[in-house]
């Protein structure tokens, strides 16, 4: 009985906080936009009984999904988001891995402090941290002033309102999500394994590629998911730091919802986004499962 309850808890959690909201979003995505409160049609009228439910279902259709294919804006935005998320994830990994590696190889008494430093930015509001990048990256901002003072450049660089600023914002914001799982992984890594690899003829570098990297694979994958998934739907960072030409699905979603007041299309955009995100995760898990079974 107690076991049953323990198994049920995560499922109930999932049902209450994911499945039910998702079903509602799917339902809205199958509706039509209407000038009403709430602004879509049909509404489920339970007072009409069985007939009401039947009419309700007969009114639902996939029109909004077909609509998404009629305008190249949507797939371009999805693609552009995927690209931005992928590049940001790669950059975050490139920067985060050495940091995690450095932390894991630091003296144990230093590690707690270093960990603290990584987590510290979370104590400030995310929004304020992104806003402060405006002050750093703008034409008359800290970075340009500094570079001009150094004499590296003689014209201020245009960074703010470009895709570069978006990358900076995403990498900065999500870096801890990359560092922490990799660090957790590397910290457990037995130093003797590296010595063993060197003993067996590896240089420092090849020991890193042949032993450290494969053994931190699960941390790398976890970190990449933690960065890639929120980055793909990111709205705040491209809005604040990106230029008007930065096309991201989060912004499109916002416009559909707020400017067009088209909740059904907005929901369709969200459903497609979820599918785009969930499919690779499921494929990956399947693959992991297979590997695990194969090695049994």
């Amino acid at each position: 009985m107690r076991r049953l309850v323990l198994i049920l808890v995560p499922y109930l959690w999932l049902i209450a906080l994911f499945l039910i909201p998702f079903v509602i979003v799917v339902k809205i995505s199958l509706s039509d936009v209407a000038l009403a409160r709430p602004p879509y049609f049909p509404q489920l009228d339970l007072t009409a009984g069985w007939a009401g439910i039947r009419t309700f279902f007969s009114e639902l259709d996939f029109e909004n999904f077909t609509f998404l294919t009629t305008d190249d804006l949507y797939w371009k935005a999805y693609l552009s988001s995927l690209k931005i998320a992928a590049i940001s994830t790669a950059l975050t990994l490139l920067i985060g891995y050495p940091i995690a590696y450095g932390m894991a190889s630091a003296r144990p008494e230093w590690r707690a402090t270093l960990m603290m430093l990584v987590i510290l930015p979370f104590w400030t509001s995310f929004l304020i941290r992104v806003y402060s990048w405006i002050g750093i990256l703008s034409q008359g901002g800290l970075l340009n002033t500094f570079l001009l003072w150094l004499g590296v450049i003689d014209q201020p660089l245009t960074i703010l309102n470009t895709e570069i600023a978006v990358y900076i914002g995403i990498v900065y914001t999500y870096l801890p999500f990359m560092i922490l799982p990799i660090y957790a992984n590397l910290e457990k890594l037995d130093g003797a394994l590296i010595e063993a690899a060197e003993d067996l003829g590896c240089s420092r570098t090849s020991a890193f590629w042949l032993v450290t990297i494969p053994l931190s694979k699960s941390g790398i994958i976890a970190g990449c998911f933690l960065v890639f998934i929120p980055a793909i739907g990111e709205f705040v960072i491209p809005s604040l730091l990106g230029g008007s030409q930065t096309l991201m699905i989060g912004k499109v979603l916002y416009e559909e919802f707020f400017s067009n007041r088209d909740w059904p299309v907005a929901s369709a955009v969200a459903v497609v986004l979820l599918v785009i995100l969930i499919v690779p995760i499921i494929l990956f898990q399947r693959n992991e499962q297979k590997n695990r079974e194969a090695s049994q």
Binding site: D190, A192, L193, E195, A196, A197, E198, D199, L200, G201, C202, S203, V211, P214, L215, K217
Partner: peptide
């Protein structure tokens, strides 16, 4: 170490788990 004609068997064995 990687250039020495010496090999070591580690106390923890240090087998590569992957």
């Amino acid at each position: 170490p990687n250039k020495r004609p010496v090999n070591m068997m580690f106390q923890s064995y240090a087998l590569f788990p992957h």
